[in-house]
């Protein structure tokens, strides 16, 4: 679904991504670990197409198309969606209006979706205005529910979220990724897995979210280099035990 080859990216005159190669297949969820400032958010912003992030080398392919030079909205309409860590406040634009704008021409059950996230009381507030960390996550997920993308980029979905809400956030992410457990008893787990088409790439610092969302592959991004591809839980344990320095050694 997504194939990144030899990607180099600059932000201003600073090179933030130096070498990134990554492939995400339909139905897969990948996790990105890495210390602050290693380039994780830059990678997500680059995939979404933000103009500050300039691709200097390499290509990004999505659904078989080269999207390296594509505009943000074209990428979104092609099926990429992102949950932002610090989205801007849009004064005067109600959250309700924004959610409707995320799904033009489609009938959506806005109230039900908001209800699912305990977010009804925010629908008539200005988008992101005075929202706490956890409220921002719920607002972002609500917009993604309306947008219904095929590849979901999640920038630290659990940061600023209280322990009670984190399981709710996890459940909704699973729903967005078609990973809701149980229910369809007619199909075996294996069948269900094979039917999944949605893919995800998520950033986590703490790894908490992995208690709720099953990830398939973990990567470590360190100083602009993507390395250490492996089992996400093992990767996380390795980082917890040995620190990111160890990952530097893996790279060479």
């Amino acid at each position: 679904m997504l194939r990144i080859e030899n990607l180099k990216v600059s932000l201003g005159d600073r090179e933030v991504l130096k070498e990134v190669n990554l492939e995400i297949k339909p139905g897969e969820v990948h996790v990105l670990f890495g210390p602050n400032g290693s380039g994780k958010t830059s990678l997500l912003m680059t995939l979404m197409g933000f103009s500050n992030y300039r691709v200097t080398e390499g290509t990004i392919n999505f659904k078989g198309r080269d999207i390296t030079g594509m505009s943000i909205d074209e990428r979104a309409r092609l099926g990429i969606g992102m949950s932002f860590q610090r989205p801007p406040t849009i004064k005067g634009l109600k959250t309700r209006q924004m959610v409707a704008l995320c799904s033009p021409g489609k009938e959506i059950q806005l109230e039900e979706m908001a209800n699912r996230l305990n977010f009804e009381s925010f629908l008539d507030r200005d988008l992101n205005s005075g929202f706490s960390g956890g409220e921002i996550k719920r607002s972002e997920l609500l917009q993604l529910m309306a947008q219904n993308p095929d590849l979901i980029l999640l920038d630290e979905p659990e940061s600023g979220v209280d322990l009670e809400s984190i399981s709710l956030i996890g459940e909704v992410i699973n729903e967005l990724l078609e990973r809701k457990p149980g229910k369809d008893h007619a199909a075996s787990s294996r069948e269900r897995r094979s039917k999944r088409a949605k893919a995800g790439l998520l950033i986590t610092h703490t790894g908490y979210i992995l208690n709720y969302v099953d990830a398939d592959v973990g990567h470590v991004l360190y100083d602009g280099f993507l390395s250490c591809h492996g089992n996400p839980r093992e990767t996380l344990r390795c980082i917890q035990d040995m620190g990111y320095q160890e990952c530097m050694r893996c790279m060479v």
Partner: peptide
């Protein structure tokens, strides 16, 4: 702000 809105599929 414009790019944030565009990431939800809206044209500029």
């Amino acid at each position: 702000e414009i790019e944030y809105m565009m990431s939800r599929g809206m044209s500029e």
